[in-house]
Design a protein around this nucleic acid. Sequence first.
DNA 1: ATGGTTGCTTAGCAA
Length: 259
Amino acid sequence: MPTIATWNVNSIKARHDRFISWLSDTEADIVCLQELKVTEEAFPNDAISEVGFHSAVYGQKTWNGVAILSREPITDVVRGMDDDVDDPQARVISARTYGINVVGVYVPNGKSVGSDKWSYKMHWLERLRSMLLNRFAPSDPVALLGDFNIAPTDDDAANPAKWSESVLCDPEGRARLEAIVDFGFLDLVRVHNDGPGPYTWWDYRRLAFPKGDGLRIDHIFATTPLANRSIRAWVDRDERKGSKPSDHAPVLAEFSPAD
DNA sequence: ATGGTTGCTTAGCAA
């Protein structure tokens, strides 16, 4: 079975050299990317292809943008929620590869609790829940992964008191994520690691990374056909180090081979 | 301490 990964690269252009270097070395076979900040035309398909990956892209100028990469062919690509809402923000892409239904998401940040962007985040999470219910059953092999902009519990923040008022830790956001997970997902990093931590995001500001002020807001969720084979899930923390890192580190999950 | 940094776009927004 493939190893799967998610990474918010915070601009595929600004991250190009680091990203291609990471991709050429990674053990991941399926990679979901967020915050591309480019249109499909500007996506580096050729460089990605040269290191052995197919790609499916849902791009957008300046903001957002998501992709699914795979070492095997990608089919059944769906860009967006596939509902009746007119939403120009490129935040979700779904596809099949390795016989798995992969759903890559970049959940809205929400800015501050109660703001217009917060309302959009809450509504967006409800749309995601509906989409999953409409398209999949818990007995299907589904991987739901990406930047959720939600730390599910206080064990997912190094300084929970400091972040308690933030959109990343708000109880309503957590409840809406829980409603999605209740579809039949397991949180693979939490299956294999007791909290607190590990963390996946550290603010560029306030020396958050050297101070260890991280949050776990990037997740890999899997339905039981996949989760039953899960043997390891971890954060590639080294990718947050060094020159010009993304503010997010990649998250990976490994599975035992099929029978 | 309402600060600080990064990216896109070029003054202000988003995160």
